[in-house]
Design a protein around this nucleic acid. Sequence first.
RNA 1: CGGGGCGUAGCGCAGUCUGGUAGCGCAUUCGGUUUGGGACCGAAAGGUCGGAGGUUCGAAUCCUCUCGCCCCGACCA
Length: 436
Amino acid sequence: MRLSTYFMPTLKETPAEAQIVSHRLMLRAGMIRQSSAGIYSWLPLGLKVLKNIEQVVREEQNAINCHEVLMPTIQSADLWRQSGRYDDYGPEMLRVSDRHGRDMLYGPTNEEQITEIFANSIRSYRDVPQLLYHIQWKFRDEVRPRFGIMRGREFLMKDAYSFDLDKEGAQNSYNKMFVSYLKTYERLGLKAIPMAADTGPIGGDMSHEFLILAETGESEIACHNECLNNNWLKDVDADSNLGKIVHTFTEKYAATDEMRDEKTERALGSNLITARGIEVGHIFYFGTKYSSKLGAVVTGPNGEEITVEMGSYGIGVSRLVGAIIEACHDDRGIIWPETVTPYKVGLINLRHDDDNCTNACDNMYSLLKDAGIEALYDDRDKKAGVKFADMDLIGLPWQIIIGPKSVKDGIVEFKNRKTGELVELSAAAALNLLKG
RNA sequence: CGGGGCGUAGCGCAGUCUGGUAGCGCAUUCGGUUUGGGACCGAAAGGUCGGAGGUUCGAAUCCUCUCGCCCCGACCA
């Protein structure tokens, strides 16, 4: 992409309303613009990152045979009356009515909808278990939206739902999703720590929140220091012993504010770590809460009726954009993990008006393009300093810098955004590094 | 929803206390000089001072109401 024709309105100064670093950087990098409190528009650069994260999440869901669907944002109030949540949900639910005066709502979550779909479609125990998910915009009318995209009212969420015949089956679905989440965060370059979460009236230990540590996190968390050293998973296949993996990740104490236990913490002594964290995922098992009310019942092997056991599993996709920035930045700007970066490499032409320089850049750009490497080419008529600052701000992991000096020496400068390390290479060598 | 703060040019701000025809920096446009970490000189353009009502000869400034945004807390992906 040539920056001269792109839409990337960067800001030199931080807008007054932005307080936390991810919000500031997203505004400054031209990723988002605020529409109203807790509601944002996504500009090209931000949208690209959002889509990349969404894709990683999608691939990991698909990998565990969880099937993607897409449910609407607008739902009928009747469905929610059946589950009893129309009244329970309170003012956080945005209620609207259509031209006929029918009560509708902008979905804050989709348990009712998915349960209805399941109930209308699946009759036999043979078709269970089932895992379904979708990635859709949600609206929750938060009392206090804040922190930019991190606690918006409108947000993009991946929510998955499991349907099983019994509690053991539900436990297995839960474990699958648990491990899948570990892999997802690993791929996104995050260390997300699973923590025991409040299970509400269902009880048991089948609810976990996944948190990444960040000073700006909203939850006050505490955990055993070894939780930070767990090996985040790369290669887990379907045959792995999921229960065992879940066990290793949950055996040590780790709890968010409402679940903290003073006694346990005192016993941990110097092994205890307290910190702040950002919740990037939440999974829980809730039994037959919705299936019983919405009639999600299948016929069992002996002709008996079985009300399915359900769980739901959420990842805040749009929140992850902010969370990743909170975890990956320095005083110059963002530092994207390779898996979500909007472009793999930034190409800087230091002297737009120098033909040799521009030719060398155009050439490099073609090489990158031919190699299938997505590059953002700063071919603007701007000062070198402006280009350096913008490139550091938007945080592409690699930079290729070409100026009169490098042209004379027949090299390019290859910079690692994270370490700042700068090496001089031939164009071909730089290309190879990026391919590798 | 309780407490606090802020709305003045695209962005960052001053001016408000003490009323007198709206200003600075950056960005933008044009001309020139520059050119490896947010250049310099000159010129230009850009504002119903969030909105409504009121007080006054006169309101960004005082009064009343209202809308919006941000922060702290209680709740949540």
